[in-house]
């Protein structure tokens, strides 16, 4: 496979101690409050699922814990409908709290149309539009 993948990076500083953020990232009832319903356990190699319920993100995301470094780093697979990515959270203490960096890597262009199209039943529609856009440039 020589196909290029892309990585999404989102960063934000929170005025809270890293230990507190770590709890929000690793305790199932807290994860449910900000991310999704889940059966997460902070154990290396553990499989778990994230459940999504919204018009645009319905379904289940299959995950496996890849890295657990308490208060520092957490990573898991994020696989859903043919999309195979890895989500990595890195916590860095700052003067006022903690910097959270979320990296989601492994995005492949070919999956974009299938993934969103399948969710919405729009494969044909998005395919046509992509052609339309291509002709405009």
């Amino acid at each position: 496979m020589t196909e290029e993948t892309r990585t999404l990076v989102i960063e934000r500083e929170f005025p809270h101690p890293p230990e507190k953020l770590w709890r929000a990232l690793t305790q199932p009832h807290l994860i449910a409050e900000w991310l999704m319903q889940n059966d997460f356990e902070p154990v290396l190699g553990r499989d778990f699922k994230l459940h999504v319920e919204s018009p645009r993100w319905s379904g289940i995301i299959d995950c496996k814990v890849l890295i657990v470094e308490p208060n520092r780093k957490l990573a898991y697979n994020w696989n859903s409908m043919g999309l195979e990515t890895v989500v990595t959270f890195t916590l860095t203490p700052t003067k006022n709290g903690v910097q959270l960096r979320m990296e989601q890597s492994g995005f492949r262009e070919e999956h974009a149309r299938n993934f969103h199209g399948a969710k919405l039943g729009w494969q044909k529609f998005l395919g046509n539009l992509e052609q339309t856009l291509a002709r405009l440039d």
């Binding site: 999404l8 989102i10 953020l21 409050e33 991310l35 959270l100 974009a112």
Partner: peptide, 27 residues
Amino acid sequence: PLLDWMSLYAGFWHERFDHLESLLNRM
């Protein structure tokens, strides 16, 4: 922006980070 699915995911995470921030404030 709709065809650039990474922007959709970016929107998703920004929104989740907002929830995370409000959760941290409540904890």
